[in-house]
């Protein structure tokens, strides 16, 4: 359990949010042209990193807006929070 600094609402409890999984997975422009392997890669395969990971979160019990987060999954420390469409502030 931790606090999340929503870019729209400020600091709130994590239980107000829904995790949306790995961020920056780009939806294929032409899904019909993908091979089965490429489709599986897009749909199912995940880095599932132990360490610094880029994620999507949704403030479901607040502003209901999506945003991105950089978080260390080994200790749940949040490195940065940024809006959708923005470049990640840390590498």
């Amino acid at each position: 359990m931790f606090l999340i600094n929503c870019p729209f609402c400020g600091e709130r409890e994590q239980s107000e949010f829904k995790a949306g999984g790995e961020a920056h997975i780009v939806r294929p422009k032409q899904p019909t042209e993908l091979s089965d392997d490429e489709w599986a890669e897009y749909l199912f395969m995940r880095k599932n990193i132990k360490g610094v990971q880029f994620e999507r979160w949704n403030h479901v019990h607040g502003c209901r807006k999506w945003f991105n987060m950089v978080r260390d999954t080994s200790n749940d420390q949040i490195k940065a929070v940024y809006k959708m469409g923005e470049k990640p502030p840390v590498k």
Binding site: M1, Q14, S15, K18, A19, G21, N48, I49, K50, Q53, E55, W57, R71, T73, S74, N75, D76
Partner: peptide, 14 residues
């Protein structure tokens, strides 16, 4: 389970 990826072996109180 919590709904976020974590390796911390801790879960949320809620």
């Amino acid at each position: 389970t919590d709904d976020y990826v974590s390796y911390s072996q801790k879960g949320s109180h809620d």
